[in-house]
């Protein structure tokens, strides 16, 4: 199975994950400060900053795009409950 690295900038920790893993599946287990609300692409609580590897996350869905817009997300911000890791990427809490 193809692997990728997800690094959490706030806790200096990298995890090797199978490609397709969502950030939410990793971040809480390792204690990153990314926080979650509804966990289903509605509330916008889990907006995170993508520090490196912006193109190594799955494309946002139409729904994620809408939630990001309504919550005034900045450039290079994504929902941690939705974004899937498809290549090496570094993220951190906003």
């Amino acid at each position: 199975m193809a692997k990728a690295k997800v690094s959490f900038d706030d806790i200096d920790l990298t995890v090797n994950v199978p490609v397709g893993t969502r950030v939410i599946e990793v971040s809480e287990k390792v204690g990153s400060g990314i926080i979650y609300g509804c966990r289903e692409c509605d509330c916008g609580t889990c907006i995170m900053e993508v520090v490196e590897g912006w193109n190594n996350l799955s494309e946002p869905s139409v729904l994620e795009d809408k939630v990001l817009r309504e919550n005034l997300a900045g450039r290079h911000q994504r929902l941690a409950c939705q974004a899937q890791i498809i290549g090496d990427v570094t993220v951190k809490p906003v």
């Binding site: 690295k5 200096d12 920790l13 990298t14 090797n16 893993t21 990793v26 287990k29």
Partner: peptide, 18 residues
């Protein structure tokens, strides 16, 4: 140490170990 932001050695973990 975490609280004052003292960097620990950057660790690499396997997803399966979590």
């Amino acid at each position: 140490s975490i609280l004052i932001g003292k960097k620990k050695e950057c660790k690499v973990l396997e997803f399966g170990e979590l």
